[in-house]
Nucleic acid binder design. Structure first.
Lengths: 175, 175
DNA sequence: TCACCTATTTATAATTT
DNA sequence: TAAATTATAAATAGGTG
């Protein structure tokens, strides 16, 4: 849609590439805006220029919510990937805070965790991942359950399981 | 660009809205692809339909890298927001793992942290956030510095600071 | 560099199959 | 319904000031 048909390949001339980048970028964002209004949808457009500059647009909802939606959908795909692959991807900060908080809780309960804390990191990971069941009968388990809502605790344990490849999925943490 | 000019407002007829959604969504993603090739850029498009279904496209780079770029840029804006707001946003899982690992490291160095570990959670947070400077002269600081790359440690400390509202930004952790 | 211009291509709304 | 067609609106490539 111009005086000449252009092949879709890198524009070699730097200044016309810059002009085209600016024009088409604006066009793309305008198209996103229209689609979001016409069809009641939420659209995020992120453009990173060759020089690394970021241009973004969020229509119909805010950027974080749209990316959140992507993360939720994407989480399933992550299941199949290994840890190295996972590290290139994301978790909600909320979950991070919960995990940090749960680790923190474990630390604050250290007097009851003496044995566990003296073992190796691998053992500790296993504890956080897979031994919740056995802790149920102890005061520690009681305290942890009181500290975090049951469902969230289970999710955190499962998250650790996913990260470290354990089998917490099979744990039940009943009330 | 059709038989009639259309106003940019919600299409009331459900089936024509669906048809337009499908056509324009494809058009948008194709435009993104072209722009990324023509101008050597990376473009992410996330579309969430009214019914909540997600459509995504990443051109020029993978989705995670593009969103990562957004997160890095966006981090500055987050500074001004409170924790509740922050929890609706994201951190790379990589950073999560580093933080968990750093907490883990702190735990494994517990014999040197006896005093710190016996204080309250608030005190502990303060330690992790703001007291790195004072730790520099101790063996603990040495071990931490050896355990994690310097730059990453600083970033983690700053991240804790951002989360808990401390002032680790002012800390220097020199080698 | 930066708007504006406009010939032309491209996208798409309505229609047909 | 859904895919293909077609008439038209919209986007934009190259040009101009």
């Amino acid at each position: 849609m111009g005086r000449k048909k252009v092949e879709i390949k890198r524009i070699e001339n730097k200044s016309s590439r810059q002009v085209t980048f600016s024009k088409r970028r604006n066009g793309l964002i305008e198209k996103a805006r229209q689609l979001s209004i016409l069809c009641e949808s939420s659209i995020a457009v992120l453009v990173v220029s060759g020089s690394g500059k970021l241009y973004k647009s969020a229509s119909g909802d805010n950027m974080s919510k749209i990316i959140d939606r992507y993360e939720i959908h994407h989480a399933d795909e992550l299941e199949a990937l290994d840890l190295a692959e996972k590290t290139r991807n994301y978790l909600p900060l909320k979950e991070l805070l919960e995990i940090v908080q749960s680790v923190d809780t474990l630390i604050s309960l250290e007097e009851q965790l003496e044995t566990a804390l003296s073992v190796t990191r691998a053992r500790k990971t296993e504890l956080m991942m897979g031994e919740v069941k056995s802790l149920q009968k102890t005061d520690l388990a009681e305290k942890i359950r009181n500290y975090l809502p049951h469902k969230e605790l289970l999710e955190i344990v499962q998250r650790f399981s996913n990260i470290y490849g354990g089998t917490a999925r099979d744990c039940s943490v009943s009330n």
